[in-house]
Write a protein that binds this DNA or RNA. Sequence first.
DNA 1: CCCGTGACTTCCG
DNA 2: ACGGAAGCCACGG
Length: 110
Amino acid sequence: MKEEKQDFFKRVYQVAKQIPEGRVTSYGAIAQYLGVKSSARVVGWAMNASHGDMSVPAHRVVNRVGLLSGKHHFEGTNLMQQLLESEGVIVKDNKVQNLEQIYWNPCEEL
DNA sequence: CCCGTGACTTCCG
DNA sequence: ACGGAAGCCACGG
């Protein structure tokens, strides 16, 4: 596929890279910021493609309830959780705690 | 061009 | 309140 076609992916990467450390956001939030609020899954899929781009902090992107849905896509176990905890994010049982406090809304922050 | 897939989200029972 | 089902959009084959 052509790079121009990946504009959507690039958008997702750009937003993800702008997520401050110790903060997390949801796929739907990114999708909404990009203008397609009904494409949260596509955002997740874009993250899947982000595997080739380590600079994309995919571990900071969780689902709406703060659940590390993408953890299964990482190295497998608790790498994602460790990365988040290492940034100051409290994670328990694959779930982000005090989500409302660390939630980063691109629509408002950007 | 049609179909399948996916790290989500929301509604209905 | 909880669980299952449908909807959604983009990409690859």
